[in-house]
Amino acid sequence: MRRIYFRRIGSCLSVRRDIFLSAIPVEMMLAPVRQIDGFVLACLADASSGMILGSLQDETGTRLPVAAAGVVSVLPMMTGELAADGTVEDVIVAVGGHYHLIRLFRPGPARRLLLRVTPERLQASLAMVYREIGDFSAGLCGERDWVA
């Protein structure tokens, strides 16, 4: 049973680019996400190229390149006509024993990053996970995209 949820943002989140311009390695930057109950995996990928910029993993079951490729494959669903009235902010996929939360954010006008966080479905509270990821990405969000 697979369920996919979409949410659109109404306003741009706060800008804290100083985090991105600091000397923190990506893995350290992702550390707060590891505190999520049932945490299994997190990875940050460039939305255009699909290159993995950093990752954290508590289980070895998932191949990280596959995880990142899966994230980038979702991107076309988050843009185009579906996002015509705003910006699709995230996608939540419930698969078997896991949730997969994929969040799109923009630390700069020409850069889009995708964050994927996978927690255990039984251990994680989806609302809390959602809030944690929202807080995390709010600190990294940049400018809003253009709408043609």
């Binding site: 939305a47 015509a84 043609a148």
Partner: peptide, 16 residues
């Protein structure tokens, strides 16, 4: 003109 509204990223807009 396009027949429908489409969202493009900043990068895509720069290309367009």
């Amino acid at each position: 003109p396009l027949s429908r509204a489409i969202h493009v990223s900043g990068f895509q807009w720069a290309i367009l």
